[in-house]
Design a protein around this nucleic acid. Structure first.
Lengths: 245, 245
DNA sequence: CCTTGACAGATAATCGATTATTTGGATAGT
DNA sequence: ACTATCCAAATAATCGATTATCTGTCAAGG
C-alpha cells in the first residue's frame, strides 16, 4: 500500500512536470489544468458572468494552444459555468435572479433528498467524514480582508456540503448536487464576502451535521433546507442591491 | 483541397425533429453532427456499454479528424453517456442494475417535481404542446420488426416526456431530466423492444397528459410516478434476465 | 434616407503532423 | 521460476497552419 500523501493541498509548482515527482495525481493534461484554472476564474468572478470568451485572447492569456483550451472549456460546459453555440463560440454563463432562484429551489429538493438517502444508508465511515468536514470548516476562519482565507473557506464549505450527501450511494445525484453547488458558489463569492449578521453559519452547519450522524432524518433535512433557503434569500437581496441586471 | 466523401455521406438535413423549425439547422459543425451520430449509436446500443472508444478507429469509422471527434465526445460526457480519463481516453458509460435503479429513482423525483411545477405555472401554450405531443406519440406505431418505427416512437416518446415538464420554467431542471431520459432510453432500447404485455402504455400516457392539462396535480403526478416506476421494474427484470452483470 | 449586397477583418472550426504518455512484452538479474 | 527494468508499439494530447463562418462597414440603388 502506498502512503497516500493527503494533508493540505500542496501548492503545485507553476510549471514543474513529472520529472522528480512520482506522486502526480489527477490533473495531468493541459486541458485538465486549464479546466481548473478557468473554473476558479469564473466562480471567483474574475471572468465576468455573461461575457464572451475570445479564444484567441484566452489562448494568449493562458499561454496554451487551441486544442487544450477547447478541452478545458468543454468541461466547464458540463459544469454549467460556460455556454456554447456553434460557430459563435463560448461565453460565461449569465447570472440572473431567476437562475439564482432555480438553483436554490433545486438545491433544496436535491440536496435534501440526497441527505435523507445518506442518513438512510450511509455507513459509519460516512459519519466520520461528515464530522471531519464539519470540524475543518468550522476551524477555518473567513476574513474578507484576506482573500486566501476566503478561498480556503469556500473549498471546505463545498467539501462539507458534498460530504454530507456523499453517503447516498447515488453518483448521478451527487453529480447534480455538485453542479448546483458550483453555480451557487459563484453567486456567493461575487455577492457575499461575509456572512449576514443575523446568522450563525457555523452553528447551522453543526446542527445539520449532528442531526445527520444521529440519523434524525426530519430534523437534519429541515435544518439543511432552511440553511439553503436562508443563503438563497440573502443572495437574492444582495443581487437585487448590487446587481446591475 | 476537398475532403472526398465516400458513399456513407447522408443528406444531413434528414432528421429534422424540430417541430417548429423553419430555421433548418443547428447542427452546423462537424462536431455537432458527430455528437448526434454518436449519441444515437450509444443509445441504440450500437456502441456497447462499457467499451473503450479508440480515437483512431473512431476517426476512420466516421471519416473525421481528431478535433471534431473530441468535440463530439465532450458533449456526450455532458450527457452522461461517455466517460473520460486523462491520458486514458474515452469509454461508453457502463450500465448496471444500480445505475438503472438510480436513474429510475431520480426520474421519479425530478420528473414528477417538474411536472408539478409545470402544472402550477404552465400556460395554455404548454397545455397545447402536451396534447400535440401525446397525439403524435399515440398515433405512432411501434413495430419491433421495423426499426425505423422504433426510432420514431422513441423520438416522440422522449419528446412527450420533455414536453410534459417543459412548462416548469426551470432550465436546469429540464436539463437534468433530459439527461436522465437519455440514460433511461438506452436501457429501454437495448432491453425492451416491445411493451410488456400487461401494460397499456398509450393509456398511461393519456392519463398523465389529461391529468396535467386538467391541473389535477396529485393525480397526474401519481400517474407519472407509476409510469416511470413500472418501466423501471420491467427494465430491471429484463436486465436481470438477459444481462450478464 | 433607408435598404441591400459585397467586401474585409475577426473569429471559430478543422486538419495533418508532432510530441507525450501509457501499455504490453521482452530481457536481465536474483 | 519470479520480479523488476527497459524498450517499442499503441494511443492520447498538443501544436501550428489552414479553411470555413460570421459580423460589421460602406457603397450603390431604390
Amino acid at each position: 500500500m502506498v502512503p497516500h500523501d493527503d494533508g493540505a493541498s500542496a501548492p503545485p509548482a507553476e510549471d514543474a512536470p513529472s520529472s522528480s515527482g512520482f506522486l502526480d495525481d489527477g490533473k495531468n493534461t493541459i486541458g485538465s489544468q486549464l479546466a481548473s484554472r478557468l473554473r476558479e476564474a469564473i466562480i471567483s468572478g474574475e471572468l465576468q458572468a455573461g461575457s464572451k470568451i475570445n479564444l484567441d485572447k484566452a489562448r494568449k492569456t493562458f499561454n496554451v494552444s487551441l486544442s487544450p483550451l477547447r478541452e478545458g472549456l468543454a468541461r466547464l460546459i458540463s459544469d454549467g459555468l460556460v455556454e456554447f453555440e456553434d460557430n459563435r463560440g463560448y461565453r460565461v454563463s449569465s447570472i440572473s435572479l431567476a437562475n439564482l432562484e432555480e438553483i436554490t429551489v433545486l438545491r433544496e429538493e436535491l440536496e435534501v433528498f440526497a441527505l435523507r438517502e445518506s442518513m438512510r444508508i450511509g455507513d459509519v465511515e460516512w459519519e466520520g467524514n461528515v464530522m471531519r468536514a464539519l470540524h475543518r470548516l468550522n476551524r477555518t476562519e473567513r476574513d474578507a480582508a484576506r482573500p486566501e482565507t476566503l478561498e480556503r473557506w469556500e473549498e471546505f464549505h463545498r467539501e462539507f456540503h458534498l460530504t454530507l450527501i456523499s453517503g447516498c450511494g447515488k453518483p448521478i445525484l451527487l453529480h447534480f448536487c455538485s453542479l448546483l453547488l458550483n453555480l451557487n458558489d459563484r453567486y456567493r463569492r461575487v455577492f457575499l464576502t461575509r456572512t449576514s449578521g443575523d446568522r450563525n453559519v457555523s452553528q447551522e452547519h453543526s446542527e445539520i451535521a449532528q442531526g445527520a450522524v444521529a440519523r434524525d432524518l426530519d430534523y437534519a433535512c429541515d435544518m439543511l433546507r432552511q440553511h439553503i433557503h436562508r443563503t438563497g434569500t440573502n443572495l437574492r437581496n444582495h443581487l437585487a442591491t448590487k446587481g446591475t441586471l
